[in-house]
């Protein structure tokens, strides 16, 4: 934990502001992964503002923490967070997904602050295993984090990497699963059930914590107790709500990559503004 100065209240405000911006840039671009970006944004918020030793100043340092977003399609959440961290001017996001923009619809190293190019699913964890092994080889202190979607877990490469992570005792590695229980076709349970995830990861030699992934304090608590067990990789099963923060988007499959209409956009922003006043008055 590097940034302890920020309060939970400030973090909660940031989450709402990030949600507003996610919707703003998706609406402008008329493209994006709305539901998943809203479900994972609290995780990114706590990672970048509390947990990760990553900043524009140290981004070229070999000792920085590494974050690789395996669920690359929720790039809007990452772009908004990185802009807030000062990696680039937020106004750059006005070009997102436009002709010749470097802000494409999946994470790319062309954007300052992005660690690896992702987008095809099942790639983040193997890369992070390599990064975590490198840290152990060099006896470096940095830690490695990756965010996976629950829908990408049937990709076999995740489980190949899970085996290597425990073989190499990578307690400097933390995977976070954005478990919103939905994917493009339906519920993860009906598309390809991967439950019970805790038992699966435990049996693969991981230390597991299951938390509410849209709860700032629960996220802070979980990250502050890493590694969950010395000599084991850690996984946080973050139970989230797809579309979190906008009532008509919550838990609705159609918002996987739905783009709000003008009226829906206004409604969503109003709801988020109201959430901000509630936090302010809390």
């Amino acid at each position: 934990m590097y940034k302890v100065s920020i309060t939970s209240k400030e973090l909660k405000q940031k989450s709402v502001i990030y949600r507003k911006k996610i919707l703003q840039y998706i609406s402008q671009a008329k493209a994006g992964h709305t539901g998943g970006s809203l479900s994972c944004i609290d995780i990114l918020n706590v990672l970048y503002n509390v947990v990760l030793n990553v900043s524009p100043e140290n981004f070229s340092s070999p000792n920085r923490d590494r974050y690789v977003q395996s669920k690359g399609h929720c790039v809007e959440a990452l772009y908004v967070t990185l802009a807030d961290k000062g990696f680039f001017n937020e106004s750059d996001l006005n070009t997102m997904c436009q002709y010749q923009s470097k802000y494409i619809g999946h994470p790319t190293k062309k954007v300052n602050g992005v660690e690896q190019n992702t987008g095809a699913l099942g790639h983040g964890l193997p890369i992070c295993v390599g990064m975590a092994i490198a840290a152990k080889m060099d006896e470096k202190e940095y830690r490695v984090f990756t965010l996976l979607g629950d829908g990408e877990l049937p990709e076999g490469s995740n489980w190949e990497a899970a085996l290597s992570a425990s073989k190499y005792k990578l307690d400097n590695l933390c995977a976070i699963i954005d478990k919103n229980n939905l994917q493009i076709t339906g519920t993860t349970a009906e598309v390809c059930n991967t439950d019970p995830l805790n038992k699966k990861f435990e049996s693969f030699g991981w230390a597991v914590k299951e938390i509410s992934g849209n709860d700032i304090d629960a996220l802070k608590d979980a990250f502050s107790s890493l590694p969950f067990e010395k000599g084991k990789p850690s996984v946080i099963i973050a139970n989230t709500n797809k579309g979190k923060g906008v009532s008509f988007m919550e838990n609705e499959i159609k918002w996987h990559h739905g783009v709000p209409s003008a009226a829906q956009y206004l409604l969503a922003q109003q709801e988020l503004d109201y959430a901000l006043t509630l936090i302010e008055n809390d």
Partner: peptide, 26 residues
């Protein structure tokens, strides 16, 4: 022995792990 990583018969992981190692200067 400290310069070899064995992932077992798992070629996708082999290449992903290799990429992560290379990203960290190996």
């Amino acid at each position: 022995p400290n310069q070899i990583v064995e992932v077992g018969i798992a070629e996708q992981n082999l290449v992903g792990v290799a990429a992560g190692l290379a990203a960290c200067g190996k």
